[in-house]
Amino acid sequence: MTSFAVFLRGVNVGGVTIKSADLRALFETLPVTDVKTLLASGNVTCSSDLKLQELKALSEQSLRSRFGYEAWVVVLEADTLEQIVDGCPFPADDPSTHSYVTLFSDPAVLRELLRFASSIDEAVYPLGTVAAAWQSPKGKTLDSPLNAFTNKARFKNGTTTRNLRTLQKVLAATRS
């Protein structure tokens, strides 16, 4: 049995609203155990004998069917999430800056983000092949070129961004 973190893209923004209790109830119908939802922003932890890609496909299909929206998720094994959190070079709490981690289902998109960041002289740190850490001044995230890049429609099926504090909480939930 493997512990997983499932990160939904675009939940509780842009008119797509899913209550945590409804999200948890949906996942409890899947071949998973120990389902927890966190922070009302599309974060689920669970355990399963499914392979990562099987859980991704089943999660997306179930979300689409139940909630009627174009659902996309990034799924990570808990051990991978731990490596990402531990490897992030930024502090989780800073009075002037937000620390973000963009998660990727496709390593090619991560490489594309790194090329883009280099072209605009933005600091982005790869965390393995499935994540990249970056920062934005508080109050400026929506104006960030990195945020705009990762929100392009062509990336919606394989990226999502969380702040580092959220990832720390999700990781803790996979361990409890």
Score class of each variant (00 low, 15 high):
M1P: 05
S3V: 10
F4S: 03
F4L: 04
A5S: 09
V6Y: 12
V6D: 06
R9N: 03
G10L: 04
V11P: 13
L23C: 08
R24S: 12
E28K: 09
T29F: 11
L30C: 12
L30D: 11
L30W: 08
V32S: 11
D34M: 09
V35M: 13
K36R: 12
L38P: 06
L39S: 06
S41M: 05
N43H: 10
S47K: 03
D49F: 02
D49Y: 05
K51S: 04
Q53N: 10
Q53P: 00
Q53L: 07
E54S: 11
E54H: 13
L55N: 02
K56E: 07
Q61I: 00
S62P: 08
R64T: 12
R64H: 06
F67C: 03
G68W: 05
G68A: 08
Y69A: 04
E70C: 01
E70Q: 05
V75F: 12
L76M: 11
L76T: 09
L76C: 08
E77N: 02
E77M: 06
D79Q: 08
L81I: 15
G87A: 14
C88S: 13
P89R: 01
A92T: 15
D93N: 10
D94F: 07
D94W: 08
P95K: 08
P95C: 08
S96W: 00
S96D: 15
T97K: 06
T97H: 07
H98K: 13
Y100A: 12
Y100K: 14
Y100M: 15
T102I: 01
F104S: 00
S105C: 07
P107D: 06
P107G: 03
P107E: 04
P107H: 03
A108C: 02
A108P: 02
R111E: 00
L113V: 02
R115W: 00
F116V: 00
A117K: 02
A123Q: 04
Y125T: 15
G128E: 14
A133N: 05
Q135I: 03
Q135G: 02
P137Y: 01
P137C: 00
G139Q: 03
K140S: 09
K140T: 01
D143Q: 14
S144T: 02
P145T: 00
T150G: 01
T150I: 13
N151C: 11
A153G: 06
A153E: 04
R154G: 01
G158Y: 05
T161W: 09
R162V: 12
N163G: 09
N163P: 14
R165F: 05
R165V: 15
R165M: 13
A172W: 10
A173H: 12
A173Y: 10
A173W: 04
T174E: 01
S176K: 11
S176L: 11
